[in-house]
Nucleic acid binder design. Structure first.
Length: 279
DNA sequence: TTCCGATGGCCAC
DNA sequence: TGGCCCTCGGAAC
């Protein structure tokens, strides 16, 4: 489920509803019993999201680090929490809300030092206010990997997952296999803006819905999953811009979706020239 | 009822 | 690069 948008959304909800509450904690599954004992009885004082990582700070300097990985799920119930599933790694309960965490890649207590070390490795997160596009640009251009690979590298830009990379590259009309070192500033600026907008909308709405191009009225909120994307998981279906069948490529064991025509080398530059000419 | 894939990432080789 | 971990919904039988 989780790309950066989900993590930021969770952080916002928890900040609003849970900070200042005291929690009891347990680990129905048993794999986090020791950590749960340390958490139990403490008040949540802050919640922060960085890329796909979530940090809950409790009183007494106790810090919980959660990474949902591919399968992780963090549910919240304001009232009437159901019994936890047997796989529930951590349950945090207060009179006002209950959290159920299952299947995380990471659920651990970290010292402030360990948290700082972890965060120092993360690249610019487009959803964080201090994010620097200039640093992200420099970081993306390091090395020779294709743009599509560089985008998933959390040490360059953090929070981007497989859906967002496909949709952002499509909206920015960039060829996914372009060597990242050849990315030009004007192309990067379109890409960064696409990422920022997709992430921000998805963090607010709770799911990724890519704007359709060419400009079409925004679909109704009831838009079905398979209609939410321009290219992701749409192999063989017509590109919404040019009707060319969407391509699927296996790259570093991840599926990559793109339009060979709209995202051919030079497509972005051609479009930029056209829009300048018509201004 | 079983099976499979998924919006991640780590580690060993 | 491949194997592996973790969970769960929906497709396939």
């Amino acid at each position: 489920m989780p790309e950066g948008n989900i993590i930021h959304r969770l952080a916002r909800i928890h900040r609003r509803w849970l900070v200042g509450r005291g929690f009891s904690a347990d680990s129905p599954q048993g794999r986090f019993s020791e950590g749960a004992r340390h958490l139990s009885g403490r008040t949540l004082v802050a919640v922060d999201a960085h890329g796909k990582h979530l940090f809950h700070h409790f009183e007494g300097g106790v810090r919980l680090h959660i990474h949902l990985g591919l399968f992780g799920n963090l549910r919240h119930f304001r009232t009437g929490a159901p019994p936890p599933s047997p796989a529930c790694r951590l349950r945090l309960a207060s009179p006002h809300a209950t959290l159920h965490l299952s299947g995380p890649q990471a659920c651990e207590l970290l010292s402030p030092q360990a948290e700082a070390t972890l965060r120092a490795r993360l690249g610019e997160d487009p959803l964080r206010p201090e994010a620097s596009p200039a640093r992200a640009f420099e970081s993306l251009r390091r090395g020779r990997s294709p743009l599509a690979i560089a985008l998933l590298d959390q040490e360059r830009i953090s929070g981007v997952g497989n859906i967002l990379r496909a949709e952002a590259l499509f909206l920015a009309r960039l060829p996914p296999l372009l060597p990242a070192s050849e990315l030009r500033l004007e192309d990067f600026e379109r890409l960064w803006e696409a990422l920022r907008e997709l992430l921000e909308d998805a963090a607010r709405d709770g799911r990724i819905v890519a704007p359709r191009a060419p400009p079409a009225p925004w679909e109704t909120p009831g838009r079905r999953r398979e209609d939410r994307f321009n290219v992701y998981d749409r192999a063989g279906q017509p590109c919404p811009r040019c009707a060319t069948p969407i391509s699927r490529l296996e790259l570093a064991s991840r599926a990559l979706f793109f339009c060979e025509r709209c995202q051919s080398p030079g497509a972005g530059a051609r479009r930029a020239r056209q829009s300048r000419a018509t201004r």
